[in-house]
Design a protein around this nucleic acid. Structure first.
Lengths: 249, 249
DNA sequence: AAATCCAGTTCGAAATTTTGTAACTTGTGT
DNA sequence: ACACAAGTTACAAAATTTCGAACTGGATTT
């Protein structure tokens, strides 16, 4: 392995875990000769990967990283990244998979994998659905900031679409708490009769939940209790997508 | 200069300007041996600076950059970064310098350099002021998204604080357009009698105008026409601060 | 004001590391 | 099934980095 690169990465990782460091500080903490560190910093400085506080003369990570990060963010395409995972989920469950996002008011379907079974669900990419009675909606809503959650709940009308739709605000708040605890959401015929779903949240580089992935089943074929056996796989897939979107820790 | 680092930086810069590249593509575009490129990519992959699309096997910039960028963003402190610049502006103009931000409704003073002259302006860090009749407020507002600008203008009451306060909505919209054109804003006794100001916008890594820096003068000592002679220096300082906050291009 | 100390910087010979050829493997398309 | 292109590995040659040492400059102490 190119030792030069490894040493450079070690310096970057050290700078990452500190705010500002002097040459000496790096010398003390890493087993790299100070003249080598000096040479590396000088070159990195020139290319913007490291910057120097003009007053304190201390080193920190360069703004080049910001520049690169914004380019990565612009190039990240949730559908491209997630599609393979959705296919695999479809393969495993043989049920309908949806990828959804939240437009501030409702859930929007942005990708879909069809079940191979003859009876399929009716849904289309681009369709919208209420947040309060879909697993995907609840999975996203549950992990938003308190202020946002409250203002959205205030605007909800809780119109029952099925006999299972949650119409009580307190019960809905409890349901969200339960989702936060368990890490996934369910919909037991709350949106459409005879359809049940489970959904898991997807985070991106900003650490915010921006999307959800869900498995939907027709109850005559698969009861909610059986659908829930897929929860660990679902959450795992969602976590993998999050990672690929730049979510860390 | 350590050639290994320089080569690594060149590879990163190439990846930056493309979405996904194969080893061959990098080999074609850079004068670096393919086995070297391969070795570098392998090591960079291990440390997360480069990632590989598992399907296409193509390389792109790693999510480590996102990780590092969020740390940089968290550590950036506008006051620390700008203070030296504000001092220099105070030195040059010998007038009062303010650093301001926008809380969604009004302008907030977050730093101040006093004029050395006996007669000083009354203002304190933490104070708030209207956006529509201060140079700083207008400098920030002028560069917000259209939707935001409109919704803020809708809420403005245009209460005259001096005889020069702009009270006509159309005139105010024209003034904002003028600021966008010129790159700086003025306040000719629109907020307080006998005080004039010029202000320039400051952008951060997100490319949005988040702050403004302003020079305020007491008209008996310095008329607006004279204050405006500092505009180029002011805009230059604001641009420098923007750069240090990670703003590029 | 001189002296001391500490961090940072530069230099060059020694030597380790990178380099790049070449051979091999994998995968893709015909 | 073959041919071709891309990707991967190994190794000896060589060029680069390395690191000790010496120097500079700034800060602190005597």
């Amino acid at each position: 392995m190119p030792q030069t690169l490894v040493k450079f990465f070690k310096i970057i990782e050290l700078l990452e875990s500190s705010s500002e460091l002097r040459l000496k500080d790096i010398d003390d903490r890493l087993d790299i000769d100070k003249s080598t560190i000096h040479r590396f910093l000088k070159t990195s400085l020139k290319y913007g990967f490291v910057r120097m506080n003009p007053v304190s003369k201390k080193y920190s990570l360069g703004l080049k990283f910001l520049n690169i990060a914004t380019k990565i963010i612009d190039s990240i395409d949730i559908r491209n990244i997630s599609h393979q995972h959705l296919l695999e989920l479809g393969e495993i469950s043989n049920e309908t998979i949806h990828l959804t996002t939240f437009d501030g008011k409702r859930v929007v379907y942005i990708d879909k994998i069809e079940s191979r079974e003859p009876i399929r669900m009716y849904s289309r990419i681009g369709n919208i659905a209420p947040i309060n009675c879909t697993a995907a909606g609840k999975a996203i809503l549950a992990f938003q900031e308190d202020g946002i959650v409250n203002s959205i709940i205030e605007k909800l009308d809780f119109i029952p679409l099925t006999k299972n739709t949650i119409t009580d605000k307190e019960k809905f708040i409890e349901a969200l708490e339960d989702i936060r605890q368990k890490g996934f959401a369910v919909d037991d015929s709350e949106h459409e009769e005879d359809i049940c779903c489970i959904a898991a949240p997807i985070r991106d580089y900003s650490k915010e939940v921006k999307y959800a992935v869900s498995i939907s089943a027709i109850k005559s074929r698969m009861e909610l209790s059986k659908l829930i056996t897929f929860k660990d796989i679902l959450v795992d897939k969602a976590d993998n997508i999050s990672k690929e979107l730049g979510y860390m820790k």
